[in-house]
Design a protein around this nucleic acid. Sequence first.
DNA 1: TGCAAGACTTGATATATGTCAAAATGACTA
DNA 2: TAGTCATTTTGACATATATCAAGTCTTGCA
Lengths: 208, 208
Amino acid sequence: MHRLEDLSNNKRSYTSGAYLYRTGDCFKSLHAIRSGSFKTRVLHEDGREQVTGFLMAGEIIGLDAISTDHHTCEAVAMENSEVCELPFNKLEELSRDIPSLQRHLHKIMSREIVRDQGIMLLLGSMRAEERLAAFLLNLSQRNAAHGMSGAQLKLHMSRLEIGSYLGLKLETVSRTFSHLHESGVIKVRNRAIEILDFPALKAILARP
Amino acid sequence: MHRLEDLSNNKRSYTSGAYLYRTGDCFKSLHAIRSGSFKTRVLHEDGREQVTGFLMAGEIIGLDAISTDHHTCEAVAMENSEVCELPFNKLEELSRDIPSLQRHLHKIMSREIVRDQGIMLLLGSMRAEERLAAFLLNLSQRNAAHGMSGAQLKLHMSRLEIGSYLGLKLETVSRTFSHLHESGVIKVRNRAIEILDFPALKAILARP
DNA sequence: TGCAAGACTTGATATATGTCAAAATGACTA
DNA sequence: TAGTCATTTTGACATATATCAAGTCTTGCA
């Protein structure tokens, strides 16, 4: 596993709003997010766009590009962030020698597929309030997994971006936040969200 | 590449409606569809479900399960079908020796991620008619890729299943089919669809 | 072949979310 | 610090899709 370190000494910084890659860019490396966060989005010919993910520290970004050797979406930093470059052919080479790395890489890719299936379920069959509840709980969980608070969330994305991700208009996102705020489930102060009543938030999801 | 054949001599048949695997099943093998077609769907606690894919001959099924060694969705045959079992640890073993196979496997997984992103775009930002147009064009393209007609489609799934996949109710699917039929873009006779006007169908997608 | 169950279509109506608009708030810059 | 611009909230209204309800058509089985 020490050989992995050869791979990971190449760190780069991105300021908020900077592109990690754009649609069509040639693919050479995956990137591990060391700090900060990124959003990914796909673009349709007619200017339509869809945010497909919000990624934070510890997560791997760029898996879409392996398919065609070109990026099929773009990744933008949502705050000042650091990534570690993982040249993909080195990764493949290493994973031929190290079965546990190979397995790990496969699991990472598969996990992304599972994550996308979850979003499809959300987009295909949930109402606005359920989508937002699922979104907040997911964020909370990932925050907690990094030793940060599960209750206090600092959103680095706008209502517009949340809307795009959840298949809602920004006004609907705003209204739904307000509604959850009024019912005492969460506290909303601009982009700082506090989850006050976890069971209630989970109950929104559990009841179809 | 001949060693691949060792892998692929294990064929199995599934009658229409039979499960290839269920949610929670232990994962051992991917499956290559030799003939026929399958649908995959994810289940939510509250009985909610979402069809996440319709797979046909030549496609690989089961990639979701690598993540946890257990299947996170279920796969059901939509007609009498044959699959070829690909034991995953043998696949990993072989791909350590054969870089081109390794690369191929990675591309297959990445392609699935890209496909899912496309569905997220569809579910998140398209109207009913656009979703159905995208669905039909995709089906047509895959049909044509297998040497079959791109214009004559035989649907193996019900309106309910199409609706689940596209995030619509079955009535909306039916109405939208009827509408496309009336406007002369397609001809609908039960599950036999004929695409009469490709440019018109594509135009529905291009105009936001 | 005929019957029954499921699949599909179509209509009337309800509703969640979108659209348009304006005001309020917050953030950045000069 | 003030001023400008972007973001967010909130309201009134529009609309796409969902829901409920018949009714018709297929299909598979007896």
